[in-house]
Amino acid sequence: GSCQYCSPGTYISSTGAASCSKCKAGTFAPGRGSRNCRPCSAGSFSNAGSSRCTQCSLGYYAPSSGSSRCMKCPYGSIATNAQRTKCYKFGECYFANKNFVSTSVSRTKSSKPCQSWTVRYCSWHTLKRTCHVPNPTAKASQSTGNTCRTFTEQGGSNKPWCYTKTSTRWELCNIPLCGPRLRECYNKGTKNFVSGIAVTRSGKPCQGWEIKSCPSGTVGKTCHVPNTALKLARLIGNTCRITTASSEKRPWCYTRTSRRWETCNIPQC
């Protein structure tokens, strides 16, 4: 009799074979008459006998090619990149047009160390070499620490960046944009939660948690002194949070407006 082509999802292992073989899980054969099966690319998977691979769902990832299944991201992280090849902790991906303060990244995309945001003056022999005076927006933000961040007031690309401790004045950081369907959420009853969002539910910008006193004329207007428990907690950054130092059970922050504090638009998981 005449020979027949193997159907999609199967292949012929050798000339003259009596039957076609199914592609193994993690591989695929897209068309008829395949002589071999191709491995699925990282971020996707396939079952045995597949003619195509399927991208991992949001929150699942496949770090290498040839995967037969996707793995669930660890608690507190999610796969946000389009390829679904790795997971990022909440707060280590940023949302467009929202203030963001990284909790751990203090190097630029080319590994230059970040300069502290509290620098207000550089000595003559360090200026432009290892020290850079922040622009008015960065100064007015009352930011502390040296982790990468964004300022919605600044305009432009709004990507996380920092001043560097090298001759390069500033540089972007290697922090991904959160996926379009990604939404942070907090677990009911949690005592510690740190968001990547630094704006309240009504759009008010969050004040830094490190503030111990307010400049004259700003108290109750654009600056609020944290209560004693929050001072002792030594919190950093300005993103919404739940903390044991406060009785509020939803993510919140002090604001840089006349309203002392407000909850944030982050849903319960």
Rank of each mutant, 00 (worst) to 15 (best):
P74T: 07
N265E: 05
R107F: 15
S123I: 13
F100R: 02
C56W: 02
T137R: 11
T54F: 14
W261K: 14
W124H: 13
K128Y: 15
Q154R: 07
C23T: 04
I197S: 12
K139E: 10
Q115D: 08
R120K: 14
P74R: 02
E262N: 08
A79I: 05
Q4A: 13
F45L: 05
Q83G: 09
A79R: 10
Y254W: 08
Y11D: 03
T80M: 13
K112Y: 11
R234H: 14
N227T: 08
Y11N: 04
P180Y: 14
C264S: 14
K212E: 07
W161I: 03
E92K: 11
R183I: 01
S19F: 11
C93Q: 07
M71H: 13
T218Y: 07
K98R: 11
A17W: 07
V225Y: 06
S167C: 06
N97T: 07
N81C: 09
G203V: 01
R149P: 10
Y75T: 15
A140L: 09
G179R: 09
I242F: 05
N192M: 12
N97A: 00
L232P: 03
I175Q: 07
S202G: 15
G145K: 01
L58N: 15
K89L: 15
G156Y: 12
F45C: 13
P215L: 07
A229S: 14
S34W: 01
Y163N: 15
T54M: 09
C6A: 07
P226Y: 04
W209F: 04
T85W: 05
S111L: 13
G196C: 09
S157A: 11
A48Y: 04
L182W: 13
E184W: 06
C264M: 05
Y163C: 14
C37F: 01
M71K: 12
C148L: 03
N174Q: 10
S110Q: 13
Y163K: 07
T168E: 12
A17Q: 06
F151L: 08
S34L: 10
S21I: 00
T103V: 03
R120P: 02
Y186A: 00
P215C: 08
T243Y: 00
P113K: 05
G217R: 05
T126Q: 04
C87V: 05
L127H: 13
K98P: 02
A96C: 06
E210L: 08
C37T: 01
T85M: 03
R69H: 08
S67L: 09
S216Y: 08
Q207M: 05
R256L: 08
Y11T: 00
A29N: 01
L230R: 14
A29R: 12
A229W: 06
A25V: 01
G9F: 00
C6S: 02
W209G: 00
F193T: 01
T255N: 06
Q207D: 00
A229T: 15
Q115F: 01
W170K: 11
F100K: 03
T27P: 06
P180Q: 10
H224D: 02
T228I: 06
K212T: 10
C3H: 10
H224W: 13
E184H: 14
T228N: 08
P180I: 02
A96P: 07
C223G: 09
S7L: 13
S216P: 05
S21P: 00
G220C: 05
T218M: 14
K139F: 09
S65K: 09
L182P: 10
W170V: 02
G16N: 02
